[in-house]
Design a protein around this nucleic acid. Sequence first.
DNA 1: GCATACGCTAAGCGCTTGCTTAGTTTGCAA
DNA 2: TTGCAAACTAAGCAAGCGCTTAGCGTATGC
Lengths: 198, 198
Amino acid sequence: MTNITARERLLNAAVESFAEKGFSGTTTRDIASRAGMSPAAVYVHHDTKESLLFTVSLEGHRHSLDVISAAAATSNDPVERLRTMVYDFSLWHADNSRVGRIVQYEFHALTPEHRAEIAKLRRGIEKTMQDALADGVDKGVLDVADIPGTALALLSLGVDLVRWFVPGGTRTADELATLHAELAVRMTLRAPSSRASR
Amino acid sequence: MTNITARERLLNAAVESFAEKGFSGTTTRDIASRAGMSPAAVYVHHDTKESLLFTVSLEGHRHSLDVISAAAATSNDPVERLRTMVYDFSLWHADNSRVGRIVQYEFHALTPEHRAEIAKLRRGIEKTMQDALADGVDKGVLDVADIPGTALALLSLGVDLVRWFVPGGTRTADELATLHAELAVRMTLRAPSSRASR
DNA sequence: GCATACGCTAAGCGCTTGCTTAGTTTGCAA
DNA sequence: TTGCAAACTAAGCAAGCGCTTAGCGTATGC
């Protein structure tokens, strides 16, 4: 009970510190003091500093994969589905921008084994977006010449927002996600004339 | 003469190391040995490790601002101008992905004074893109409801590519930049029906 | 009422860090 | 030939690093 709480307090402290100073810029003493504990207490609940990063990164990647997968299953209409996927993916990054920064920018700090495991989840995210575009093209609703490249561009909208988004700024997470969803549709929608020609 | 060469060899070594391991993950001994010098030689040519980062970051920001400013001046046609701006901005990031990673991801490692100076250049980049969009809207050629948000999204295409782009991969820098330029036009172009209504 | 296990800390080990100091080498002006 | 500045290195300092060890207090099962 208290075991779980202390472990999670340390994980939350690690998220704060990694997001603010990066993995290499964070000391185990930082994490411990943010969690209100002595430096040695970190090692009661976590093996190494890197395993803390791996736990945070794995959880973050799983969440964002879950979010985009769930969105992909909400509709059979390619346009509405794409709108939901981009909206939810960008919203998740805005609502979790600290975890998002760790997910996106600290990938290289993982051990090769952990990196390989997380790379699989990343491929899953890209695949989900590619499949949604391919289905829309098949149904004649979307016009996408370069599916992998366009999928990456759509994901970039969500990914890159963690670099500058601040909660409580001039723009809400919902407004940003709505904008991204609209831009995504415009990037991929087949023009009326070419749709008529089908 | 040799002074300039040694100074630049150290800067190149710093670019390699910062891009690969991040600023905090890089040691001054890394930089020195990559430049084929002793650790102390770094301090003959540069004040601190952070001043090396500042020099690299400042030069990188200036280059990318120059690139997008020059592109903004190539045409009066809003569509062609936007296409050129996005193409050149993404191309620069693909051709300079190591410097791009430092520019984008090591901003927080700068001292507050240096950060403030570089923030000005960043605002210049955003302003240039916003002005191009606003002019296109004024001329009735583009349809952009949220100009600051859309400008950020267009820049995100170039910025985020440094996270995954590898020279010599399946995609050339030119192909990627061409794709981004096309997507940018689709994101912002006024639809024929709404253009007719003007 | 005692033994045991658990959550945690004080102290610190061996190593690496950014940077400095003191001194050597080199090339060139007078 | 001498004098001197500039480029560079060997050695090392103080501080900070990830992580370990030894031990303390407390709660729980018996």
